Computed example of a mutant assay.
Amino acid sequence: MAEAKQKHPRLILRNFLTLFQCEELEFIHKSNSTVGYRPNVFSTTLSHLIATNSPHLLMPFVPIRESLKEKVEEFFGCEYELFVEFTGLISWCRGASIGWHSDDNRPYLKQRAFAAVCYLNSFGKDFKGGLFHFQDGEPRTIEPLAGDVVMYTADGHNIHSVDEITGGERLTLTLWFSRDASHDEDAKLVSLLSQRLLHNNVPGPCLPLLASSNMYWFSLDQSSHRQLGFDICWARLHVLGFDVYSYQDTSCDSDLSELLTMPLQLARGVELFNVEFVNILHALQDF
C-alpha cells in the first residue's frame, strides 16, 4: 500500500466543506457562470467575478483556498510554499465527459503540480454519471459527494477520466497549485482589483455588470450560430419560475444582447414584483 501511495499519491478528504459552503458556492456559480472550456461545461473564475464588478463574491473562496493549500503542502511533503495557480467553479451538464488525461498534459499547463477537486453536490442525488476514475492505483473510482475533496499530483502518476453526465449537473470547485511564483493567481487578482479601483470613480452600490454576451450564450451545437442557442442568465430565471418584464420594447425582433442590459422587473404568474433591477445578473444575485 505504501509503494502504491508513492507511485500514485492521492488523498480523499471527507466532509472537508460544510453543506452551507457548498450551497453558497453553488449560488455564486448559478448567478455568474459563463460558457466553459468544453461543450456542455460552465465555469466561474475569480477573474470573471472581478471583471463583472462582483469582487465581494471572492470572500467565500478565501478560507477554502488557504486551508486546501495547507492540506496539499502537508500531504505531499512540499518543502517550499505552493502558489494557487487557478481557482474555478466548474459544472458539467448532460453530455459532458473527459477521457484519460493528466492535468499537466499541455505545454501551457506544465506549471501545474497538484490538483484539488471539491465536490459541491452528490452523485445519484443531484446528477447521474460523472464518476471520477483513476487509471491506476487506489482508490480507482470516486463517487462525488458534496463536501468531499480529492487531491492528487497533476502529472502522469495520476491519469484520470470523468464519465459522461447522463442527467442533472455535476458541480465542483477545482484548484491547481504550482511551485512557480510567476503563475501565482493571487498576484493576478490583486492587479485586476487595483485596475478596477483606479478606473471605477463612480460611487454607489456594487452592482454586477454583464460580460461579453458571447460568454453567456450557450449553444447546443458549439459550431452553430448564436440564434440557435440561449442566454444562460435568461434561462436561469425561467427555470426558477420567473418571467422578465422590461419597460422597453421586447418584441421578437429585438436583439437579445440589448435586452440583457435593460432595467427589468420579475413576474411570477400574474404577480409583478415591485423591485427594479439594472440587468439580469443583478436580479439573479439579489432576488
Rank of each mutant, 00 (worst) to 15 (best):
Y119W: 11
K128G: 15
R38L: 10
V149R: 07
I90S: 07
T34H: 01
K125T: 15
S91Q: 09
I90L: 13
V117F: 01
K71M: 03
F83E: 07
C118F: 01
S43E: 10
A51Y: 05
D136I: 00
E85T: 04
Q111S: 14
N53L: 06
L57M: 05
G129C: 14
G124R: 09
G36L: 10
L131T: 11
T34S: 11
F114R: 00
G147R: 02
G124F: 09
C93R: 11
Q111L: 12
D136F: 10
K128N: 13
N32E: 04
R38F: 07
E81H: 09
Y37N: 12
G36Y: 07
Y152D: 06
F123W: 12
W92T: 10
P39T: 12
P63N: 08
A113E: 07
L68K: 01
L49T: 08
S102H: 00
L49E: 07
H48G: 09
F134E: 04
A113F: 00
S31A: 15
L68S: 03
L46A: 04
G147Q: 08
V35C: 06
R106Q: 13
L82E: 06
N121G: 03
M59C: 02
F127T: 05
F76A: 02
P39C: 13
Q135R: 14
S31M: 12
K128C: 13
A51V: 00
G129S: 09
G99S: 11
V117P: 05
S102E: 03
V149M: 12
T34Y: 06
K71T: 05
I64Y: 00
L89M: 05
E143M: 12
T153P: 00
F127M: 04
A115F: 04
F86A: 12
S91K: 09
S122W: 08
S91G: 03
M59F: 08
T153L: 05
T87N: 03
G147T: 03
V35I: 13
E74A: 07
G147M: 04
R38N: 03
L57K: 13
I142V: 12
S102M: 00
G88C: 07
V117C: 00
L145P: 00
F83K: 05
K125W: 03
Y152K: 02
T44N: 12
P144E: 07
T45Q: 04
F86Q: 15
F114M: 02
N105Q: 10
